[in-house]
Every structure is written in structure tokens, then in C-alpha cells.
Design a protein around this nucleic acid. Sequence first.
RNA 1: UGGGGUAUAGCCAAGUUGGUCAAGGCACGGGACUUUGACUCCCGCAUUCGUUGGUUCGAGUCCAACUACCCCAGCCA
Length: 558
Amino acid sequence: MAEKNEAMNANFVENIIDGDLKSGKYVPEEIHTRFPPEPNGYLHIGHAKSICLNFGLARKFGGKCNLRFDDTNPTKEDTEYVDSIQEDVKWLGFTWDDRKFYASDYFEKLYGYAVELIKRGKAFVCDLSADEIRATRGTLTEPGQESPFRNRSVEENLDLFARMKAGEFPDGSHVLRAKIDMASPNITMRDPVLYRIARTTHHRTGDAWCIYPMYDFAHPLSDAIEDITHSVCTLEFEDHRPLYDWLLESLGFDAKRPHQYEFARLNLTNTVMSKRKLRQLVEGGYVSGWDDPRMPTISGLRRRGYTAASIRDFCERIGVAKSNSLVDVAMLEHCVREDLNENADRVMAVLEPLKVVITNYPEGQTEYLVAENHPTRGGHRYVPFSREIYIEQEDFMEDPPKKFFRLKPGGEVRLKHAYIIKCEEAVKDEAGNIVELRCTYDPDSKSGGAAAGRKVKGTLHWVEAKTAIKAEVRLYDYLLMTDENGNVPDDFLAHLNPDSLRVLKNALIEPSVRYAAEGTRYQFLRKGYFCVDKDTTPDHLVFNEVVGLKDTWGKVKG
RNA sequence: UGGGGUAUAGCCAAGUUGGUCAAGGCACGGGACUUUGACUCCCGCAUUCGUUGGUUCGAGUCCAACUACCCCAGCCA
């Protein structure tokens, strides 16, 4: 299925690792990456790209990939998220074995490194307020000014830092800063803050600490502690690489220390990807939750019916590079279609039913017709057929355009797995709406029968009236509308698609799916792929549309 | 007259040290097949690699200048 990518091109990170292997810097087993989410939100398809890259690299080279929660900011983090993140990574098909770590595991060691940095004269405690630090940082074009506390003695810094840790100072009164260069053109290097005081209960360390390391300090050291060789992150951290290197070198890590490499994050058409915007959609009630099937979250895609394999395949196909890009969501859809075409059983469901009475079919008779479950993988089931059936409303037109291969007055059409029928009459109500079709069937045209060879142009799906199961079917369209370039404008809430969800309460489905388990995926013949939703109960089936079938006719008729 | 990045078809994206190199996928168009207008299968889709110069027998690949876009002034990550 979706994993036949041996021929895929290597991305630039693989090339770098290849180089490190060829130069003898590392042997394959040493290649070590990590996926470092902050547990402050749900994972989305953009994270999937990073997960596939990091775990994929380790798998490809025979190394390891750690799962590491970057939990250095207790004000935003919660165990709710660490649980969902683990579930999502596992579901995507990756394992960290016994290598689940937390930056908070290293708080003690990190503190030690900070002390060492002070001893080496490369960090100092600064008493400036946040506002003062900001005011003295300079601008993009002007250098900053050195803090008046920059030249404190090592002893004084050690004492102050210990007292920060001991809780002697109020939040915000002191920070530990690296002593680098206030005139650096790279703002990240202008004596960056390494530790801040925050009396917040941490989801894992509780109230043990009142000082917490900043990402820039914790990340490179966590990487080093775990023997990470290739620390892959997104483009916006490119400016931080000099600091990453400075810290490791200042603390004396050797030539095999970790190195940071950056790639472009994923952008998708018709989608927003930032945690902030996704949160707005959830909290504003625009969607039903983080796992709303229209959300680009892993949990949303999973509920929608996307397979893990199709998401992995997608991540493989889009590649990994350094240029900002916007991937057409059609690529993602293509990946599920390909997977489900191969792996989903076919079944017949009529989404918007129109009753058909076959007038020359014996009243009270029911026959069970053989129906293949899959065109190439085989398997079969029996579907009931009798005098009254339902077809799709859109499959009948009283006055159709040219090339309409479906039912029309006097026209013939094949019923999949069954007979050829001919439309004799369209029955209307007082308002002129077509409410029922009266047809005749050709008994010799039975599917698989001796005289089944007769060809008619169209083939329709259908369900038998008495045995059909009523179901709720949820049809989806893109949550957001885009401009001509495929971009969702910044005021995305003004571009919500009002028709992103359509609920059909009167769909009718063949009886074979009555006991389908949550998560089961089918192809509803001629319509698309559908997945049993978790809202399903023993007497109420609910399906989500995963993705529609490609529809050439839809394009023709416009 | 801050720094860091990126520019190859509508969208992703390959192009090792310059020499049939303009891969592949998505989308799109045409055709074949079809008891899913699906699938599958053919065929088409950049004389051109952001621009302009230059080096060279030869440049997407080297040099120069220019242009466009993205990121950075959290005690967020």
C-alpha cells in the first residue's frame, strides 16, 4: 500500500547524514534524532511531517529517535497534551521504545550546566526588568546596551543564581543571561535570557522549582544529554543556531556534539496550521473540538477516516527542503484515495434516496444477489433485491443534458450487481417534485447470469427498500476558503466555508454494514470513502466522508 | 548602509565535483478500458531553471550585480 517509496529521493538532511557516515564521523547506530513537542496543544499534520522526518531518519539509517517533551514553560503546558501527543505518534506508526524523555527530567543537570557557565564567566544574573531588557536590546539595525549587571563577579553571580533557585526573589526580578555580545547583528546573541523565575506548578516537577530554563538553553543541552547527533527543527530557529553552538562549545562538548539543521514547516491550502488559530476554531465553537473531522489535527484526520499509512505517504511525497511552500491539499486527498481504493471494501449506500418500484418484479419476492467486496482483492457478500428499491436522487433527470449516462424517462440503466431496468414513469407530487420512479426490469440481464452481457451505458448503486438501514452521513468540504494563490487570509475566521459540513439524516445503506465497528472504512460505490464515526450507537449509524471519489462527470456538468 | 534564509512548470520537488539534466509526484488536458462517469493503462504538460551581465568549447550547476518573498527586537517554543 502506501509504503513503496524505496525510489524516493533523499532529502537534504539525509544527504548530510550520509556525509557524516561517509566521513566516518558516525556509524549508523549512532545516528540519533528526536521529536521534541511542547505539550501545550494537539499535534497536527505539520507535526506529522516532523515526526515522519525524525523517526524516519532513525529508521532509515538504523539509529534511534527519542520522544522528548519540551516542557520548560509550566504556564502553558499540561498532561492532557502529553497523553494526546503520545497517542498520535503511536497511531502514526512510530515507537520510541523506552526513550520517552522530558526536558524537565534534566532540570537538575541543566541547573548544573548553568552554574558551570557562570563559573566560566559566560553567564550573569541580571536585575533588569523585562521592560528594561527589551529597551536595552537594541533594534534590528541598532546594537543593544550592556546590562549594568553584566560584570558582576563569578562569586556574586553564583550566590545570586543559587538564591534565585532558593526562591528568595520575586518572579521577574532577576534572570540568568548569557554573556555574549550586545552588538551582535543577530539579536538572539545579545545576552539572551537563559533562566527566569516563575512560581508556577509544573505538570511533572510540581513546586520543586521556581526557576525554569528557556528553550534556547534547555534544547541544545537536552540534545547533548541524549546524545542526539542531528537535531532537526524548523526554519525559524535558524537564527538560534549560533546560540545552540555557542552553548555547547562554551560548556566544552566535543566534536561529536549535536548539530542543528532546519527545514521548512508544512503549509497546506485551505487550512490553518498554527496552534493559536486552531485553538480559536475550537474555542470559538466553529468546530466541534480538536478532533472535528474538518481539523488538520492528527486526531481530526484520524476521526475523519484518514489512515496513518496515507499520512506517512503524504509526508514522504511532499519532501523536505528549506523553501517556504504551500502544498495543495489535493495531494493529501490523493494519498488517502490511493490507500482506501486498495484497502476499503465496497458497499452500496444511497445518500439522498429516490424510491423506485419495479412494476414487473414479483410482489413479495426477495432474492439475494452476489456482490463483490472489492474489484481486485475479491471476497463477496449477498445483497437483497426486491420490487422496491432506492436510488440516488441525482441519478435521475427528467430532462437530462447530453452524455448523461444515468436514468431518464424511457432510458435504461444497469443496477450494480443486479438487473437492467428501464424507466417507464416519473411520479410527481402536487408541487411537481419527483417522488417515485416506476420502472421495469429485464429478467435476463441478471448480473453474472448467462444473458448478463447486454451493455447499457450507465450503472447505478441502489439499496433494497425494506432491508436498508437508515444512517446519518456527514459530508465535508474545506473548513476555510482561500484566495487565488491558495492562501487562507490572516483574518481566517472571515473565510470560514459555510458549507464545510452537510449532515444527511436519511441516507440508506445496505444491511451488511449494520454491525460495522467505529473506524471501519468503506467505499460507498460511486460516491466516496466513508468511515464509521464514534457517535455511532447500536441503533444509529453515523458515517464521516473521508474523501469523495474523483468525479469527471461532476466536472463536465460543472 | 542589521542579520539569517529561500528562489527550478498551477502546486510540491530531484538535479553529486559544470558536459543529452531539465527526474518524479499532485493538479490539469486528451484517449483506451469499465456492471463504480472510480480504479487501471497510454499520451500531453518548463528550448528553460527569479533577473541581468560575466567566465567557459559547454552553466540550473562557477562569478558579479540586482530583484522578490520568508524569519528575527518573548523573562514563548
